[in-house]
Amino acid sequence: MGAGHSHPLYLEGSSVVHRLPAEVKIVAAFLTVLCVVATPREAFWAFGGYLLLLAAVWAAARIPPGWMARRALIEAPFVVLAVLLPFTGPDPRFEWAGLSLSHAGTLGAWNILAKGTLGVLTSLTLAATTPMRDLLLGLQRLRVPALVLTIATLMLRYADVIAGEARRMRLARIARGHDPRFLWQAGATARGIGSLFIRSYERGERVHLAMLSRGWTGTMPTTGAPATVRSQWLVALALPLVAAALAVTGMMTT
């Protein structure tokens, strides 16, 4: 039960970015990605501008770019889809290094790759500078319903426990020679998931009784976190503001 109250993508720190309230960072990150997505794909230089913008945030937050780059590999599955596009896209086609590539398909692949990568990097920056409990507080201040927050809080507390249990069950299967390659070999995995559900639910019943015995009334107690001030909003919203300027310039020039 040694589950920490942090998450794997969090990078301990006390920089300006770390100290900003979570709701401010969530809104800023969302608006920034929205600007990225709205930028025309032909405005190649604008995407370089976004990368510089993020690099400035990393410098302020003291996140090493190499740390970021390694974690950005999360994106790999999307790249597979994007790599197919130049080959499956419609005519007209052009020759490159002996390959016949679709013009629209290649532009589409670039579009997914550039916007997807910038999106992942923005999310990673948010995750690296925001611990879990701040994130929940931020969601609360963004008016997420109390029931949803209660469920999310408990989920985050226990996700590591349940995931650890799933990992141990998987190891146990592998240790007994389980090496599935085809769909019809999924039976053992499935029965494992069944018992995982029962264990999760019964743990929920025990947790509920434990919470009741400690005086739980149905709502999470609020902690005495300081209120967000306007200057913090101004600092954080500088990021999407610059991004919006890049997006608008991109739209005008293409």
Partner: peptide, 12 residues
């Protein structure tokens, strides 16, 4: 709490 644990289950 049960819904929370079911959500943790889906996550896992």
């Amino acid at each position: 709490p049960m819904a929370g644990l079911v959500t943790a289950f889906v996550f896992a």
